[in-house]
């Protein structure tokens, strides 16, 4: 099952490599990875998505929790949550296709953030699923470049991941 695991870690050099290293060392997969500082400059928030059985995920979260740099960890998929992935996609947009791309972008509630005589750069925000769907909808279009931020997530309601 796909899981979104989010953690607060010390904003120290080497902390990220310890998390990443653990995955390769123990044979886990990372599908997406997102890391950035938080409002507290001493802490980074790292969110990753991975796939595995319940047992494997339990072992993985225990191993992550053992890392001295990991301060707090949550499996967001255990409860209601919001996930967002951001994609920038550059496509060839000329002739009749130009209009069609614009319309599809609107349907997905994306924005065209850069325009050239023959290209559009589109920004789409949503779940990974939605982003995948948009890429699928562009199947007739010449896709030049795709950049995704990786999933960031947060629990719904009162539940917070903080110190």
């Amino acid at each position: 099952m796909r899981r979104i695991i989010s953690m607060l870690m010390e904003n120290e050099p080497g902390a990220l490599s310890r998390v990443i290293g653990l995955f390769s060392q123990r044979g886990y997969n990372i599908e997406t990875l997102n890391v950035a500082p938080t409002d507290d400059p001493t802490l980074s928030r790292l969110t990753l998505t991975t796939v595995g059985s319940d047992l494997r995920i339990e072992q993985l979260t225990k191993q992550l929790n053992k890392l001295v740099d990991v301060v707090k960890l949550a499996d967001l998929t255990e409860g209601a949550h919001i996930e967002r992935d951001m994609m920038l996609i550059k496509v060839r947009a000329s002739g009749a296709a130009r209009h069609e791309i614009k319309r599809t972008t609107d349907i997905f509630r994306g924005q065209i953030v850069d325009v050239g005589p023959n290209i559009y750069t589109i920004q789409i925000i949503g779940t990974s699923e939605k982003l995948d769907a948009f890429v699928a909808a562009m199947s007739d279009v010449d896709i030049l470049e795709v950049v995704r931020s990786g999933v960031a997530g947060i629990s719904r309601g009162e539940k917070v991941l903080s110190l």
């Binding site: 047992l55 339990e58 072992q59 225990k62 191993q63 929790n65 053992k66």
Partner: peptide, 11 residues
């Protein structure tokens, strides 16, 4: 003492 040792191999 190490939670990760528990149920790692044998439940």
């Amino acid at each position: 003492i190490d939670p990760a040792s528990i149920s790692k191999i044998v439940m």
